[in-house]
Amino acid sequence: MSGGERDEITGTETTGHEWDGIRELNNPLPRWWLWTFYATVVWGIGYIILFPAWPLVSGATTGVLGWSTRGAVAAQIGAVEAAQTESWTGLLDADLAALRDDDPDLHRFAVQAGAALFRTNCSQCHGAGAAGAVGYPNLLDDDWLWGGEIEEIAHTIRHGIRNEEDPETRFSQMPGFGDFLGRDEIRSLVAHVRALPEGVDPEAGEGGMLFADNCASCHGADARGDRAIGAPDLTDAIWLYGSDAETLTRVIAKGPYGVMPGWGGRLDEAELRALAAYVHQLGGGEADERQLGAGPALNAEPG
């Protein structure tokens, strides 16, 4: 709308609108800008028609093309899963102990899949690098409470430790000796246990007598533990809860009771086997006797 007047300073025609003595100049937008704006309007209308756009109570408009980013991602995931079907099926039938040598490609797939499963399900306790923490075992060394062969690892993952929901779980319990021993006796026993990694005779002195009477039935007369019942080796300077006197006093007096959940009800069998393959190759996994021939497995000392 033109007011038929021109601004004295700029010489621009005015619109006729005036507020508090300020007159509005008639400066129309550039043609190119207007056409660009109109094009975006047309593009927006076309997008609304073709693609999901308007939210509804129980979803959204689907658009005439029926395309969505969610559907595209689902299709990609489906394609990857289809491509991996043969590998997952092969993993179910494979001999885990011989997998590395018999089928290196399948072993590589299992390790890579197991790494992803570990980060999702295990790293919260054992750490992103599997180095463990206080009360959570380090999976990088060769100190295993229940055995480090790949099938033993798979059993632990599948059924857990002290997992009362699974009848096949591995179960052992160290009693709290605070109910049986006096304070001075526990103090002597703590000092003795702390000295075991330094080479002290497990049967020496008062602490040795206390150890023989109360601890040797599980940890062995030589204090090297018993994997069959999850009793740790006390001579190797590897401590699950710590080696300071205060911690050992608490452990001996009250008894630890660590629980690992069983993953058999959360992961399928192929995933469990992939996870076992990953943990086994981290650095502490032990070779099966079938791979070594006659004789004990590598690193077979109790831990």
Rank of each mutant, 00 (worst) to 15 (best):
Y257F: 12
H280G: 07
N138F: 02
T85L: 15
P197S: 06
E289P: 08
T40P: 00
R227A: 09
D288A: 11
E152S: 09
E203T: 14
P302D: 06
R119N: 11
H155C: 07
V41E: 08
D184M: 12
G225R: 01
T14K: 08
G66N: 02
G46A: 14
A53R: 10
D179Q: 15
R170D: 04
R250V: 15
L50G: 01
P137H: 02
Q76E: 10
R6W: 02
L298D: 12
T235W: 07
D213A: 13
A133G: 07
G208S: 06
G225P: 00
I157V: 15
H17V: 14
F37R: 14
Q124L: 13
S87V: 08
A253S: 15
G63R: 03
V73P: 00
S58P: 00
T120H: 14
T62K: 12
I186S: 03
G21H: 01
R100T: 09
G44A: 15
L272T: 06
G230H: 05
D233H: 09
D7E: 01
L145N: 03
I153C: 06
G66D: 03
G178H: 03
S217R: 11
A60D: 00
W144K: 04
A113V: 13
M260N: 02
E81A: 15
R194T: 10
E81S: 14
F171A: 11
R227P: 00
L181H: 02
G148T: 11
E5L: 14
R108I: 09
E206C: 03
P167K: 03
G90F: 03
A294G: 14
C122H: 05
P52M: 03
A113L: 08
L181M: 05
V73I: 15
E286V: 14
T69H: 11
R70V: 14
Q281S: 13
I45S: 01
L145H: 04
K254I: 10
W67K: 05
T120P: 01
W54V: 15
A128F: 09
D102T: 13
L139Y: 01
R100Q: 12
V200G: 06
I45F: 05
H159Q: 02
P55V: 03
D102Y: 01
C122L: 09
R158S: 14
Q84R: 13
W43K: 11
D213V: 11
G148F: 09
P296Y: 08
G199C: 06
L248S: 01
V259C: 01
Y241C: 07
R250A: 15
F171L: 05
I229A: 07
W54A: 10
T169K: 04
V73Y: 12
L267V: 07
S58A: 12
G127L: 08
D268L: 07
A294Q: 13
P30I: 08
A245P: 02
A131N: 00
